[in-house]
Amino acid sequence: MSAAEVWITIVLMTVVTVATRTVMLVFGDRIPLPERVQHALRFAPACALTALIAPELLTEQGAWAISLANAKLIAGAIAIAVMLSTRSMIATMGIGMAAYLALRHFG
């Protein structure tokens, strides 16, 4: 992207973000959300973030890379274990990053 395109993207992202945060506060009484829609909206962020993360951990140069040689996959698995057991974001990022650097350095 050119510099101008990046700025346009940032401004439009702001518009989208403000819209998602204000639409219900502006039209609260006029938009009753059906329960089905509420459920669908609740699933969306988890699906989107997983879809972003999965290729980063599971592929290298566009191909499946499920092996012990894939430092990101192993460090990611360690980070998942840390998050599930400690619920601490800082510990997850710290230990995950330390594992990644160690695996790349010594692996």
Binding site: M13, V16, T20, R21, V23, R42, P45, L49
Partner: peptide, 14 residues
């Protein structure tokens, strides 16, 4: 992507 990741805010603000 921004909209989808931010959809939870629609629920929150509701």
């Amino acid at each position: 992507t921004t909209a989808v990741v931010n959809l939870r805010f629609v629920i929150f603000t509701a």
